[in-house]
Design a binder for these strands. Structure first.
Length: 616
DNA sequence: AACTTACTAGCA
DNA sequence: GCTAGTAAGTTC
């Protein structure tokens, strides 16, 4: 008698053994999907092993075997297994994140694997990893193209990952123009997702260009993975399992003996640290264009004096704008914020308008005359009377791009000023001064004559150990948009973010930031994990998370530090209350193993517990 | 995750 | 004794 070991896409470890009638022996292979009876349901499972003996009594018989050829090969099984051990999910859940939706639902496919290129003998990369730190986008691409060509030459395939669909399409154009290859394009929500997946599985594409989930592209003889903008946090999945593409790429190139290239103008501290430690190879490509002049403008005195109450420009930046305008130059003013005002409040009773479903202030959009929640996208008409005290004095305060637009038109009536929201393409002739939030950084190729960073301190002052890294990333992004001059307004004059830019040496930032992370015991020196608890009732969330916190503390080992229990951020989201427990360790796999054991017997009705390893 | 069973508190 | 609510256990 043969038994199939089957895993399921639910948070239960498994695998579960099933009897296989001899009529199905021929169809039974590791890596195929099968329908199995489970409790009193019929579920889709994945055969991860075949065995002749089992210790389980009262076995059930496997239902239907769906696939003729395995949809998961040995490498993909190893990868998903490893992923489940790192990110604290079941093997089945890991498999399901690696597959297109249609396959998870049991859709039938026909695989024609006859034409598969035999895996060539020599392995291209041996698990080597490179960090290409290129301040100049094009230089980075030259390296990518060369590596792709080399890999194709040795008869191996390539996966190129980009943060978003736009970048995928751009990369497709670049690669199509410079490399002769069969391209495969993969991203979730692509209408042809399954079709493309099958094409790749059949070996009919050798350069796969994709977003995050493309890390699981079913290529047969992988030689190279490229992750562009490796620091970008979209590579981290927001749903469970919260895997990070970069980490999965490390696993995959080790398993398949391929090469990995991480590319960025602003590498993550994690990758930079590995490079410093010589764990991965580091290639720094300095900027070939002129490095802009960088000026720090002190905003300490900005708000002094009754007439300057609402001033948003330092004298220095104002003068720079005037002289740039005089020489017919183009100006970009940047701030990390959207909307007209950051919040709306009642002048009479002081109540701040909040989202009814989240613990977050609503943001006022002047042009559309609407109040919006940035978290859950709740929208409402601005009330004319205060919902709390019925007075008619709702006031809008704080600075957003819309507010700045109106301020600037007052200051520079002769200039044409344009505010860029999430608009597609920037028409440089449309204005003299452009005002924008973060969206600009990706969108334009244009080089401005002056960039004014109006507000960056809010990004630096956030209670997030990655605040400086993110702010620095923004500034490096802006650097791409000028060769001439950047004026940064700040109160934090001595911050290493700015020192690094003023001295035109990005390593200053990394050295100082690493030093601080080390002192505080944060990544990349330690791994973090967050256990999140979610429920409709505020009190229960608090109670249950405290109980869990104490329980985890009781069982903790010396390698695992159960740090704190706190309300989530935000503490209320879409009508649910959040609490979270923070854990630190040198080894994320140990956290995962620890939590798998101790979360299993923690059940409180109505409370949903999730785990995020290496949160971003 | 989904479902079953066990236990507890409140109530006529 | 009954029910509702929740805690705890199980799934091949």
């Amino acid at each position: 008698m043969l038994y199939a070991k089957v895993v399921l896409g639910i948070p239960v470890e498994g695998p579960f053994d099933y009897m296989v009638p001899d009529t199905l022996y021929k169809k039974l292979k590791v890596g195929v999907r099968a329908w199995v009876p489970f409790r009193n349901r019929r579920m889709l499972g994945y055969v991860v092993g075949i065995t002749r003996k089992t210790n389980i009594k009262n076995l059930k018989t496997i239902g239907e075997i769906i696939d003729e050829a395995p949809i998961l090969d040995k490498n993909m099984l190893s990868l998903t297994k490893e992923l489940s051990g790192y990110y604290c999910c079941s093997w089945g859940e890991a498999i399901e994140t690696a597959l297109p939706q249609a396959l998870r639902k049991g859709r039938l496919i026909k695989l024609n694997t006859l034409n598969l290129k035999a895996a060539s003998g020599k392995s291209a990369g041996l698990g080597e990893v490179f960090l290409i730190h290129a301040l100049d986008e094009n230089e980075g691409w030259d390296r990518y193209i060369q590596a792709i060509k080399d890999t194709l030459e040795s008869n191996k395939s390539v996966i190129v990952l980009l943060p978003d669909i736009n970048s995928v399409l751009k990369a497709q154009e670049i690669i199509k123009a410079r490399v002769k290859a069969n391209l495969g394009i993969l991203y979730r929500e692509q209408p042809r997702e399954l079709e493309e997946w099958v094409r790749i599985k059949e070996g009919r594409a050798d350069v796969i260009i994709a977003t995050r989930s493309g890390i699981f592209a079913p290529v047969n003889n992988l030689g190279l993975i490229i992750i562009d903008e490796e620091q970008n946090d979209v590579y981290k999945q927001e749903q469970v399992p919260h895997y990070n593409c970069r980490e999965v790429a490390f696993m995959r190139v080790r398993i398949e003996k391929a090469k990995l290239i991480l590319g960025s103008a602003q590498p993550s501290l994690e990758s930079f640290y590995l490079a410093r430690k010589n764990k991965i190879k580091y290639i720094f490509i300095p900027r070939t264009r002129a490095f802009p002049e960088i000026k720090i403008a002190d905003t300490h005195y900005l708000y002094r004096g009754p007439k300057q109450k609402n001033a948003i420009l330092t004298k220095y930046l104002e003068d720079s704008i005037i002289s740039t305008l005089n020489s017919k130059g183009k100006i970009l003013l940047f701030l990390n914020r959207k909307g007209f005002a950051t919040f709306a409040s009642c002048r009479y009773c002081g109540m701040v308008l909040e989202c009814p479903r989240c613990n977050i202030n609503l943001v006022y959009y002047f042009k559309d005359s609407i109040l919006k929640c940035h978290y859950c996208n709740f929208k409402m008409q601005p009330p004319t009377i205060c919902p709390n005290c019925n007075s008619g004095y709702i006031r809008y305060a704080g600075l957003g791009t819309e507010k700045i637009e109106s301020e600037l038109s007052r200051l520079f009536p002769q200039a044409i000023i344009k505010r860029l929201d999430n608009s597609k393409h920037l028409d440089i002739n449309a204005a003299d001064i452009f005002i924008s939030a973060t969206s600009i950084i990706k969108e334009t190729q244009y080089s401005f004559d002056l960039i004014g960073v109006l507000i960056i301190d809010n990004s630096l002052n956030r209670i997030d150990f990655r605040a400086a890294e993110k702010a620095f990333g923004l500034l490096i992004g802006l650097l791409r948009l000028t060769d001439k001059k950047i004026v940064i307004q700040t109160r934090l004059l001595k911050h290493h973010c700015f020192n690094s830019l003023v001295d035109k040496d990005v390593s200053i930032f990394y050295t100082e930031e690493l030093k601080q992370r080390k002192q505080l015991g944060f990544p990349p020196y330690k791994h973090l994990a967050i256990v999140k608890l979610r429920t409709k009732k505020e009190e229960r969330a608090k109670e249950a998370s405290n109980m869990l916190f104490n329980k985890l503390k009781k069982y903790k080992t010396k390698d695992i530090n159960i740090v704190s229990v706190n309300p989530g951020q935000p503490s209320k989201l879409r009508g649910n209350f959040y609490w979270q427990i923070l854990i630190k360790s040198d080894n994320p796999r140990k956290i995962s193993r620890f939590l798998k054991i101790h979360l299993k017997d923690f059940s409180h009705s109505g409370i949903i517990v999730t785990v995020d390893i290496d949160p971003v």
